[in-house]
């Protein structure tokens, strides 16, 4: 009886010590991997000509066609940047994962396997004890490896990741400026043409044009919101990783956990916002 008590106390201690404090890292990396705003905006950048084409003719149209070809040629490379940053985050989330290295299921089936042979001369209590010890030892061994692996990845990954994210922020800014020129081309067209459509016979035309302007204005307003949110999101990812690196040796500290969680929450909020804008 006494042995059982000591064993359970020992198991509890081991379980607590062995628990990897990586939940916050996992949440942060998981949310970061799912932020797809950059991808959508890259597609919007690629399709610029499709939207502005009806309003263009002559020289501007010729230039626009050339730009269209070049944007389409750059598209794959622009997308790859996001895919790599996202794969990095996915891998980090897996590495920090709770279930990635969980073998309790295997150990449980093993325990029931042993129970199927009552003639062994070992009773159920022994079997449970063995399976619990196996679980705790595995958890303990894997979690120390896991923490070290996460530690290494964050440490070595920070510099190239920060450079990549900075690059993505620049790219989003170019997308935004391109979109601004597109907006002014499209809305500018109506601004110039509508005043000349003031003859009574043009009333229907002018009205339809104004209705169209209204819908275009709201489309561009939504798009502008997306560029701003995407930039905020990428900055949050960068800030979160920087904080991770700074606190890599004290990830179990409550204050650190709270900070990392906040980054995960911010990124999640931005992602949800973007989904609403799209809808």
């Amino acid at each position: 009886m006494n042995t059982t008590k000591i064993t359970s106390a020992l198991l509890l201690t081991l379980a607590l010590v062995g628990c990897a404090n990586l939940k916050e890292v996992r949440d942060y990396a998981g949310e970061s991997a799912r932020l797809s705003a950059y991808m959508e905006l890259t597609a919007r950048f690629r399709d610029t000509y499709y939207r502005e084409q009806p309003y263009l003719s002559g020289e501007p149209d010729r230039l626009a066609q050339d730009n269209d070809k070049r944007r389409k040629a750059a598209y794959e490379d622009l997308l790859k940047i996001h895919q790599r940053a996202s794969l990095y985050m996915q891998t980090l989330a897996t590495l920090a994962g709770e279930d990635t290295f969980d073998i309790s299921k295997e150990v449980d089936s093993l325990a029931s396997g042993i129970k199927a042979y009552p003639d062994f001369g070992i009773n159920e209590k022994h079997v449970d004890a063995i399976s619990n010890i196996a679980k705790v030892i595995t958890k303990w061994m894997t979690s120390s490896y896991q923490e070290r692996a996460v530690h290494n990845m964050v440490k070595e990954g920070d510099a190239p990741l920060q450079t990549t994210l900075e690059g993505m922020i620049s790219l989003v800014r170019y997308y935004k400026k391109t979109n601004e020129n597109e907006r002014k081309t499209v809305l500018g067209f109506f601004e110039v043409e509508i005043p000349y459509a003031d003859a009574p016979k043009d009333k229907l035309l002018a009205t339809l044009a104004r209705v169209h302007v209204q819908s275009k204005e709201s489309e561009y307003k939504d798009a502008q919101q997306k560029y701003d949110d995407a930039e905020k999101g990428i900055k949050s990812i960068a800030g979160g990783h920087k904080r991770l690196l700074e606190n890599i040796d004290k990830l179990s500290n409550d204050e650190v956990k709270a900070t990392i969680s906040k980054f995960a929450k911010d990124i999640k909020t931005i992602r949800k916002n973007l989904q609403t804008v799209r809808g």
Binding site: L63, R84, P160, L161, T164, G167, S170, Y174, T178, K184
Partner: peptide
Amino acid sequence: RQRANGLYIDAANCVVDGLAESQKSIIDLI
């Protein structure tokens, strides 16, 4: 405006080229 947008494509291509090394490091790390 089209000329300006053409230059933004040039700038974007500069970013892509400049990131080649970091991208390689990230792939290695993964």
